[in-house]
Simulated scan of single mutants.
Amino acid sequence: MGLTAIDLGLRGATSGVFLLIILVALLRRATSQQALLGMAMSAGGLFYAITTAPFFPKSCWWWVLPVLSAQPAIFWLWARAAFDDDFVLKRWHGAVWLAIVAFGFVLTLGWARWPALAGAGGRVLSLITLVLAVAAAVQTVKTWRVDLVARRRRLRLAMLAINVGLIAVVAGAGFAAIPVVVPGGAGSFPTALCLFVVAMLAGVGTFAAPMAVTANGATAAIAPGDFSPQARRADRATTGGIVVDPLLLRRLDHLMTVERIYRQEGLAIGTLAARFDVPEYRLRQAINEGLGYRNFNAFLNHYRIEDAKAALSDPAQREVPVLTIAMDAGFQSIGPFNRAFKAETGMTPSEFRRDALAQPQTAPGSARDQEIGQRRRDIG
């Protein structure tokens, strides 16, 4: 009974934290896709903590289990939104979630009549859970190196590892037919403890959003769900009293605008840090807190797209293929270039070239020179 009491206490605290996260997100009127998925995850965690608790009536499991079985899909989508700044929710993502829920209902309703078939379906559902957990882990690894937000790199990676571990345990139990969450069973307490740790990490991530303070006294929150282009370039930002070195920003600007190092194939942040002879974390901090970029690829792509825009606007390069211009600017294929260009300008490269060449032409390089001059004045 003592272990059961602790179990229930942990689940009560977990439910309270998840509910508080949802309320805070609603009060902040958060509408970003990551915030919405975070609320969905919190609601799922709250639901899971209650329905897998000791003494929860088994008669309700026929409708509880299908909903819980689709929670890994919500987690996978949250990981995509949290670790990929270019991710956009599509209708087929919702269709995947609905399909898993529907499949779960089919299994629970058919368990009494076709137990063998339902058991095989349960193993398929466990396999889907593992695939989604692996996909979320791959997303973390794939974007780990280019992530510039130190807090996001630390906190969300820890939360992801715990969530993946919890999902893997439950899915593995489904393969082996081990009741790890039987009410009052010995496996219920570890589940409650994992849920509590996850809730605490989610609470820290929600309630401890850092503030970037600029030199002129203005403040701008670097919120977990703010991926808009307008969030860039917070000049000489500080966080917790750590000031971004303006000399490093000027050296970085010279390297990008004059030497155009962004054209180098396979350029990584470690290469730039070695070029400046500074620790990698300091360069990450300078680009993130000093210039407002959350992702190293987005930082490079800004310069590459400006380079491509200048070439596309040049009448002398009218006959140069778009692919050649993209690769000269540093892109390695046409697909990423088209996506990044349209996200930045709202037009395809061909549309931009057509409109630019139809307008009266200014002196070659004048627009780019003005932008470079303005950027240097901003940096100081």
Score class of each variant (00 low, 15 high):
G16N: 13
G365P: 08
D277N: 09
L148T: 06
F276C: 04
D253W: 00
T348W: 14
V258W: 03
N297V: 04
M1L: 11
P57Q: 09
V164S: 08
N288M: 02
I269Y: 08
Y48R: 05
F56N: 01
D235Q: 12
G165D: 02
P57K: 05
L300E: 07
S228W: 07
K58M: 12
A363F: 11
A215E: 09
F105R: 04
G174F: 01
F196T: 00
E259Q: 11
D235K: 08
I325H: 10
G373N: 11
G38E: 14
L267N: 06
S333P: 00
A237N: 03
A308I: 10
R339F: 09
R339P: 00
A161D: 02
I21W: 09
V322L: 04
P190D: 08
A168Q: 00
V88R: 15
I162L: 15
T219H: 05
R354L: 10
R304A: 14
D86W: 14
G240L: 03
Q71M: 15
P229V: 08
F352A: 06
K90T: 12
V96P: 00
R80T: 01
A340C: 02
R304K: 15
S228F: 09
D277F: 07
Q317D: 15
R91T: 05
A311F: 06
D85Q: 07
N288P: 00
G346W: 06
A95V: 12
S313N: 05
A286W: 02
V149H: 02
R284S: 06
L77Y: 01
D147G: 01
L27S: 06
G110R: 12
A220N: 01
S366A: 15
F56R: 02
A112S: 14
V322H: 00
G335R: 14
A168R: 02
F299T: 02
M41I: 15
L247I: 04
K342Q: 10
L20P: 01
L132A: 09
Q361K: 03
V131Y: 02
V106A: 14
Y281F: 13
E371P: 00
